[in-house]
Design a protein around this nucleic acid. Structure first.
Lengths: 208, 208
DNA sequence: TGTACATCAGTGAACGCGCGTTCACTGATGTAC
DNA sequence: TGTACATCAGTGAACGCGCGTTCACTGATGTAC
């Protein structure tokens, strides 16, 4: 009985991975919009058309890169303790390990690009551990006006039986951490002198 | 005695403005990386090389667009009451009025692009009213650990004699508002159902 | 007011480039008997 | 184990495209006497 994966399938998967790896390097040096199949092929010592054996075109490759980016964050969260501070620091590590991957997920949207359904599914897979971790926090403040609004619009947290204050908190965690991280990754703090990591911790403190 | 601006100078300024206007439209529909001098020329009913009478090249045009984006935010702040809530709402209005202009300032950085000095000068011109407004807030909490760190790295707030808690607050205002705004402008809230404006107000409340 | 000249906006042709993508093909790899 | 065949990875040529940018030029506009 032959292996479920034939040698050819194995090889295909390997070359596809190598293509993606070169694509990431190219994005890191020249930005996502400069991604070029021909340039990748040249870098791999192949002719341009050869890549069409592996990807239907440029768009399919970019979509897969975006999907992989989302998936890697989801995987990171899955491997992290379901506690807000732990998730926050995991997010920061993930973002700074490869800022271009981070920006592919949360950066300037590509005009006209619409994410396929499976990517939005991964997006809510990312939100889930955050909601669970926020549910474990203590809530001693009075409820904010936004809580009643979010109570009425909670379908994005489908399946999570948590009070509205938890939904609110999860959104604050998301936006506050993203605020520091995106400015840091974009280099807007360089030259200001302070340590962005400490500002990140201070913002994290505001959420616990 | 002739006018200080000759008719030719007037005309030049007018055409430069028209070029920039078409550039913005192009950025809005196809993104900043797709900006093309030839396409702008065609849109204006001119031949491509004609634009070289007005801009030395593509880079000079992009740099001027970025400068104008920074400047328009600085102007918006100058025309706004120096109060945190007012500045915050002015920022949101400015950002959502033209998300691509916002992303040109705060979005994914262009790899290899380094802003000229006068742009970083405008950047601190933007920070100034925020610092002043934060100085007018009440501070009843105990000082955060980050305050002592920012006290030691405050050269970016040169000329502002404010306590470290104010520096800290200004950074929090900047990052928290940017966190909500950038995710909203990038469309990450679409499909979630809630009103991003109310989340923005809730984050603003956390800062007052 | 009229003429001679200088300035300069805009044109069209041309350069070289890299892009995505197609196509017919060669040659190596794997499969079936 | 050996041979015949099918599969499929990769090539090279070609297509049309739009890009930034240069250059020598035409012709209109403004200036000086």
């Amino acid at each position: 009985m032959p292996d479920t994966k034939s040698p050819r399938e194995r090889y295909r998967a390997q070359v596809r991975a190598e293509i993606k790896q070169h694509a990431w390097e190219q994005i890191a040096t020249a930005g996502a919009s400069a991604l070029s199949l021909n340039a990748i092929a040249k870098q791999m010592g192949m002719s341009g058309p050869a890549l069409y054996r592996y990807y239907a075109g440029r768009d399919e490759l970019i979509t897969e890169l975006i999907r992989d980016a989302y998936q890697s964050l989801a995987d990171t969260f899955r491997a992290t303790e379901k506690e807000v501070a732990a998730l926050a620091r995991a997010l920061r590590g993930w973002a700074l390990a490869d800022p271009h991957r981070y920006f592919l997920v949360y950066g300037t949207p590509v005009p006209g690009y619409h994410a396929p359904d499976d990517i939005t599914a991964i997006a809510s897979e990312i939100m889930a551990p955050l909601l669970d971790a926020c549910a474990a926090l203590a809530y001693d403040e009075e409820p904010a006006p936004f809580d009643t609004h979010i109570e009425a619009h909670r379908q994005w947290a489908e399946g999570h039986q948590v009070p509205p204050a938890v939904l609110h908190r999860a959104l604050s965690v998301w936006t506050r951490l993203h605020g520091v991280l995106s400015l840091e990754a974009a280099g807007h703090f360089t030259g200001m002198g302070f340590d962005p990591g400490l500002l990140f911790e201070a913002e994290l403190d505001s959420l616990l």
